[in-house]
Design a protein around this nucleic acid. Structure first.
Lengths: 258, 258
DNA sequence: ACATTGAGTTCTACTATGTGGAACTCAGAT
DNA sequence: ATCTGAGTTCCACATAGTAGAACTCAATGT
């Protein structure tokens, strides 16, 4: 199912930009064009536009890196308050559990990861930036579903393992459980051997805007340990929600035409 | 002179994205479309694409804010090393001079501002994010010209005041002076009553990649004070260049196709 | 010194793609 | 219940983007 609505050029530009942003160092032009599967002429043209707007910068060796507009944005403060506020809490969860901790927000069609604290163990969840994690079979996704941050996707519920929930009724029942408990669990539903627990972060209005998860292998995250992790998660996510409260109001200041 | 090379859609998308990044809070959709001078249908379509790629996010009230990809980029470290390293030095320059301090990189056609420390006085340079500051009549621009970070623009040299340098010969002479002194000066050349002093930041190879300026009104930045500011600038920019050195090497790690 | 290769930009003819007005939907006001 | 405003979807048209080929420039080899 390719993009339903027509915007090829912008999609391509976005792909290029995202690739540059996710690479951890300047991306050589050729590699970038290849990664985006674009003929070099097209890639060149699009990058010229992005450069004009300061979104990318070409080094003297003509490798591509994030541009001044992004540096400025990243540098000074207004970068998502969420991450700054959440960071210490994520770190603490990492300390306490030793497992992989993730912060995510609801994307249009899948869970969007924002930050990750890596597991202390050798066997742990790898970094999944850019992977497509569906709502119905991830702990983070279930949190978003349970608290109405996203709608249950139309169409068939993808089966990822033999334990994946694929019917609406069973999913609804599970989500009810999430709301009762205050945290969501996925137990071998996304990938065999993988267990995750997640709890919601709400803004001042009580709207769920993000979620935090703890993920590990089923050999470590067993029975009652899950309940304990759940309790920790609730404590930390509540703290984050509280921290989020007083901020996030002002909507003054008009946008200039430059 | 509209964009010479053809890329309307990407230009429009960039404008939208930049606007969102520069606003200090979520931008209401209508305002955004207006700022970019786009019919709402077009704006909507483009934003849908940007959202698909996680570059923007639409709040429940459908105001637009930077998306998870940007939050992630901003949040975790790889945001321009330059700014992080320079920040304390800029702050110190602000302390010592009391004047407006700017960090900038060479853009394709003009000086690209990255960060600013505001003047302690009431009369000082305002924030000029997004303004078009030409190379030949700004201190920062002259630094880039003098050290070959950009070429002297073809075509007529724009006259901004009666003291603006508009001939190649006089500009070359001035740039020679910049190289001799180690810092550049603009005295009433960009705007009446405005004086700026700037010095270069070089990377490990000695290539000039950025510059720092101190800007103030001619009533305060007089004669010998300029020399003193120049000396301060050189000291701090040297320190930044040195700090920049050991980093910025690794160009391993391939870019995945996601 | 001259040919060779490779990386990136510019050119150009073709048509696929993006455009924007109008119609539509939805939510909140009156 | 009707209106108003905000945003999304639709659709016929032509503008704007596409990709191959030609071109430029630099680096490398003989």
């Amino acid at each position: 199912m390719p993009p339903p609505t027509g915007t090829q050029a912008v999609d391509r530009a976005s792909t290029l930009l995202v690739t540059v942003l996710q690479a951890d160092r300047p991306v050589p032009f050729a590699e970038l064009a290849a990664a985006a599967q674009l003929p070099k002429s097209t890639a060149s043209r699009i990058l010229t536009s992005l450069e004009r707007h300061g979104l990318v910068r070409r080094g003297s060796d003509s490798s591509i890196r994030p541009g001044p507009v992004l540096a400025r944005y990243a540098g000074s403060g207004r970068a998502d308050a969420l991450l700054r506020l959440a960071q210490p809490h994520l770190a603490r969860l990492g300390e306490l559990t030793g497992e992989t901790v993730n912060l995510a927000v609801p994307g249009p069609t899948a869970v969007d990861q924002i930050a990750q604290v890596d597991s202390r163990f050798l066997l742990g969840a790898v970094n999944w930036v850019g992977r497509d994690v569906p709502f119905h079979c991830s702990a983070l996704g279930k949190v978003f579903l349970a608290y109405g941050a996203v709608q249950v996707p139309r169409g068939r519920l993808d089966r990822r393992t033999d334990r994946t929930i694929t019917t609406r009724e069973r999913l609804d029942a599970d989500l009810e459980g999430v709301r009762r408990r205050g945290f969501a669990i996925t137990d071998n539903e996304l990938e065999a051997g993988l267990i995750a627990v997640a709890a919601p972060i709400a803004d001042a209005d009580g709207t769920v805007v993000a979620a935090v998860s703890v993920t590990g292998p089923s050999v470590r995250l067993t029975g009652n340990r899950i309940a304990g992790v759940g309790r920790l998660l609730i404590a930390e996510t509540r703290a984050i929600s509280r921290a989020l409260d007083p901020a996030e109001r002002p909507r003054n200041r008009k946008v200039g035409v430059a």
